[in-house]
């Protein structure tokens, strides 16, 4: 599904008839197109408008000015709010919203109003659990509260995936997860992105995570997009780093150094993992030893 923002502004201020909204504007004149199947990270400080922006994409909020188009249709104007159902939204710490007594019930909750037969419902839950790599038989009757943090989060994500979204929005999905759970979560997001073509958009404060997983980064500051592009080039741009108070990820610094020394191909941005960087460094040192 294509998402398009056309000069979107937003204010929480009340709108009165015949008058333009009073402001202050949380989002200002945003233009943006997100195509199907992107892996897109959104960064910005608290208060930059990230959450408001995401809520516009899900239709929780309507723009004060401008339009949000899903596959070319403005769901608000066309009175087709159901179009927003194709956007799955996973809040920060989604496991805090688990409430049912079993994993199955929690995941199936969103299907209640869909009027499905029991078999269909079960099939959908099975599918969603498979998508988040939770074994159906082993987990369906468990209480969600007895699971580990990473498992709980997967149950919460399954509760959204079961609705078969075409776009998945996640607000800081890895906050509070350990290394293994973070890796597993991104394996999962990449798999859904690759195999089902689901667009994945997530908010992240971790530059390394963005560098490793995103193909596009949008940086929000004070309600405008300060940058939009490939993470490799954005995260090594001194002006942008300065504007956000970020430090350039070491992977980029080291890769550039090795590029300067001719140890890795120049041209194109590179972000070497520590293993790759150490191999290149060892090659360089060996070569020097030989020439000396």
């Amino acid at each position: 599904m294509q998402i398009k923002l056309d000069r979107v502004s937003f204010t929480y201020g009340k709108r009165s008839r015949n008058k333009p909204p009073a402001g202050p504007y949380v989002l200002k004149q945003l233009d943006l197109t997100i195509e199907s199947g992107e892996m897109l990270a959104i960064a910005g400080k608290s208060g930059s408008g990230k959450s408001t922006f995401l809520q516009l994409l899900k239709g929780f909020l309507a723009p004060s000015e401008g339009t949000v188009l899903l596959d070319g249709v403005n769901p608000h104007q066309a009175r087709r709010p159901e179009l927003f159902d194709k956007v799955g939204f996973i809040f920060q710490y989604p496991e805090h919203q688990l409430f049912s007594t079993t994993v199955f019930d929690d995941i199936a909750f969103g299907l209640q109003s869909a009027g499905l037969a029991d078999e269909e419902k079960e099939a959908r839950v099975r599918q969603a659990m498979a998508a988040v790599q939770l074994d159906y038989e082993a987990f369906k009757d468990c209480s969600p509260f007895e699971l580990s943090g990473g498992e709980k989060r997967r149950v919460a994500i399954a509760g959204v995936v079961v609705l078969e979204p075409e776009v998945l929005i996640l607000d800081e999905p890895t906050a509070g997860l350990d290394l293994q759970s973070r890796t597993a979560l991104f394996d999962l997001l990449h798999a859904m992105n690759r195999e089902q073509g689901i667009t994945v958009m997530w908010v992240s404060h971790q530059l390394e995570e963005i560098l490793e997983h995103a193909t596009r980064l949008i940086a929000l500051k004070e309600g405008t997009f300060l940058a939009d592009g490939h993470p490799h080039s954005l995260l090594s741009d001194p002006v942008l780093l300065e504007a956000f108070g970020w430090e350039e990820p070491p992977a980029l610094v080291v890769s550039r150094l090795l590029q300067e020394l001719g140890m890795i191909e120049t041209g194109g941005q590179k972000a070497l993992a520590p293993g790759e960087a150490s191999e290149a460094i060892i090659r360089l040192l060996n070569r020097q030893r030989i020439t000396v």
């Binding site: 070491p250 520590p274 960087a277 150490s278």
Partner: peptide, 28 residues
């Protein structure tokens, strides 16, 4: 234990394993 060393420490560890004497907390 679910922990990942920062980039430079990981790099330093790998280099030390290969017998290259670098400080454990090497910086840029």
């Amino acid at each position: 234990c679910g922990l990942e060393l920062p980039y430079y420490q990981t790099l330093a560890g790998l280099l030390r394993e290969s017998g290259i004497a670098v400080p454990a907390a090497i910086n840029e």
